[in-house]
Write a protein that binds this DNA or RNA. Structure first.
Lengths: 209, 209
DNA sequence: AAATAATTGTGAAATAAATCACAAAAAATA
DNA sequence: TATTTTTTGTGATTTATTTCACAATTATTT
């Protein structure tokens, strides 16, 4: 099925997923669209339309089965297919991500970290080794890894990205504020942390008419 | 002016901003909408419409002045108004954010960190002190801080959020995967790191028809 | 000086997303 | 059993966003 999930929908699905995890922890079996909508401050019909996309039917007057919803969200978002990735840049952000065990439960498997600082090389973080960046091309080939999480300083971002592209990396999850130049076959996802903050700030904090 | 900047626009503005920084570093004075559009894989008329929103006129056959654009983006996104914030949770993510000096240049001023681990209390990170969480209410009041960056483990997220709300925190930038329950006067921005990844993954990596 | 090419600015059209409104279903209550 | 209430599912409407198309402008070339 070539069902295309729009970005906004998949973002909501992850929020629904968190709520399902919470409901399961609290031993609740069912949930209704108004309950979810109120929690997220959105319209309840939107929740139902999103669930329709998952082919997940609810029951009138009862709601949806929490367990079923959680499963279909995971299936739809591809949590099931584990994907291997490297973290490139073992600064604080890289290390934080390496320790972020949520990745694992969401199907992203960090195999190793890389850095160019000899001091860091051979350290272990959360059972993952830090390698010198020069080892990346070989390891990527041998382990068939084509996803890199880029957490180097902005100044080095493009140069390191070029190196990754030469190493046949096809997907770059870019945590640096640089806007990378890449060939069309390489996909970049800009995490843009400051961007999120500014959206937050613009919408709600500033506002002087 | 009560010009409302939609989320999608402000997200693009931050990307434009990064490109402007890069152009300035490379000594380039002007930039055209097709140049930017190609870089970001979007339509060039959209770039122009975004700039229109900034009241930033370009010059036919030449483009826009990079410096002017950077300034108006900063003015529009409120980079100029420094805002003070606390980081709550001094785990790896909290520490990484404390060291992320970009915050500062974008107008977000981290004053201090908090944790409940006595081992961490009184440590210094990037010239910012880690305080015991019990000190937060007083410091928030004295320093008039109403923004908190929440980086505690998911299990503690709601409980800590409740504590923050009692301490008169009004804006929570939530890096945990928990969906927080808050009263209407408190604004939450969910960073949802995994969400971004899954959007990335759904759009480009999976895709088995 | 005229022709050419690149670029802006913007209305119109197309696409996408969110909200509304309500019939149908089914649990709870009287 | 009949009535009430809650909730789903969805077509219609509205709103927002993106793309298209092109006139107007202006630097560059001939």
């Amino acid at each position: 099925m070539s069902k295309h999930i729009p970005e906004k929908v998949s973002n909501r699905l992850t929020l629904y997923h968190s709520i399902m995890v919470e409901y399961i922890e609290n031993g609740l079996d069912t949930i209704s669209s108004p309950q979810i909508a109120q929690r997220l401050g959105i319209d309840d019909s939107q929740v139902r339309k999103d669930f329709k996309l998952l082919n997940n039917a609810g029951k009138c007057r009862v709601g949806y089965l929490v367990k079923d919803l959680k499963d279909s969200i995971e299936k739809t978002l591809g949590f099931a297919h584990a994907k291997d990735a490297f973290i490139v840049g073992s600064g604080h952000l890289g290390l934080a991500l390496a320790k972020y065990d949520n990745f694992n439960s969401y199907g992203l498997n960090i195999l190793a970290l890389f850095d160019n600082d000899p001091q860091k090389v051979d350290m272990q973080v959360n059972n993952k080794q830090i390698f010198h960046i020069s080892k990346l091309p070989n390891l990527a080939k041998r382990l068939e890894v084509d996803i890199a999480i880029l957490t180097v300083p902005r100044q080095n971002a493009q140069q390191v990205a070029d190196f990754l592209i030469n190493s046949k990396i096809k997907y770059i999850w870019n945590f640096t504020p640089a806007v990378l130049k890449v060939p069309p076959e390489v996909k970049v996802w800009n995490e843009n942390i400051m961007g999120s903050f500014l959206q937050f700030a613009c919408k709600d904090i500033i506002q002087e008419d």
